[in-house]
């Protein structure tokens, strides 16, 4: 089943066409990577899909329904979540509280009820807490739940963002350069984590500069350059695509 469909999607910023007539789709259970040089439009594409910015033209469909231009909270409610290239954690909140905010949507009681109906609050709170804790365990951050989020090392803050996003139990997660700032060991563990997400029912759309990780985990790759789609295919196809190599990868990468 096609989970996400992007058709002739276009977005300008002033005179710059950040995303230009881009087409691609993501099947349920896939890991699709988007690669391209800086300024290729990858982050804009994520902003469009997650509702942070609205498309100028073209369409974004999720399970066949148009979602282009919906507010971020509506898109999140449909089961799409994301992480950020420049981290967007809730500072001044503890690690587990950050994840609990992500987990709140899956609360059986509405948020208002959870806030106001006292007898049910404790039980609800407990179940959200335990879901947050298992999300932290998933990304490998146990034992740090009471730290303030901002004291975690950079790589762990990235993992925390993934934990927070996964606590929403999303059907589609958009990961924006999750390996940035991570060392080799952390990147390898991240790769394993990402590779395991489809088995948990979460389809992955990944923007990443670490080619080793992309080539290992991605089922398919979409290459963007100057806002347009340059190529699409399996990791093998992309590695052998002369156009891609000249535009972006460069011989020395492989």
């Amino acid at each position: 089943m096609t989970l996400l469909g992007v058709n002739r999607l276009t977005r300008h910023f002033g005179g710059v066409t950040a995303v230009n007539f881009v087409d691609f789709h993501v099947e349920q259970g896939e890991i699709v990577a988007i690669i391209g040089p800086n300024g290729a439009g990858k982050t804009t594409l994520f902003n469009l899909i997650s509702g942070v910015v609205s498309p100028d033209s073209g369409s974004i469909t999720y399970k066949g329904a148009e979602i282009g231009g919906l507010t971020p909270e509506k898109i999140a409610a449909l089961g799409i979540t994301r992480t950020f290239q420049n981290l967007q954690l809730f500072r001044n909140m503890s690690v587990v509280e950050n994840v609990m905010v992500g987990a709140h949507r899956r609360g059986k009681k509405g948020m208002l009820q959870a806030g106001l109906r006292w007898p049910g609050v404790a039980a609800e709170e407990k179940s959200i807490y335990s879901r947050a804790m298992s999300s932290l365990e998933l990304v490998g951050l146990p034992g740090k739940e009471n730290y303030p989020a901002e004291v975690l090392p950079y790589g762990e803050q990235r993992l925390l963002e993934i934990a927070r996003a996964m606590a929403m139990e999303p059907e589609l997660i958009l990961l924006d350069e999750p390996a940035a700032g991570m060392n080799q060991g952390e990147t390898n563990r991240l790769g394993e984590l990402v590779a395991g997400l489809p088995d948990m029912g979460t389809t992955v759309l990944l923007v990443e500069h670490n080619m080793e990780m992309v080539m290992t985990v991605a089922h398919r790759i979409v290459v963007l350059d100057h806002g347009s789609k340059l190529a699409e295919g399996t990791p093998e196809d992309i590695q052998n695509d002369a156009q891609v190599i000249s535009a972006y990868l460069g011989e020395e990468v492989f």
């Binding site: 954690l89 909140m93 609990m100 208002l112 959200i128």
Partner: peptide
């Protein structure tokens, strides 16, 4: 102590991220 309270705090701290959490 409540999830709603945390959601409010989250909204105050980082509105964009809070919206992406469905708040």
């Amino acid at each position: 102590r409540t999830v709603m309270g945390k959601a409010l705090k989250a909204c105050a701290i980082n509105r964009v991220a809070a919206r992406l959490m469905g708040i």
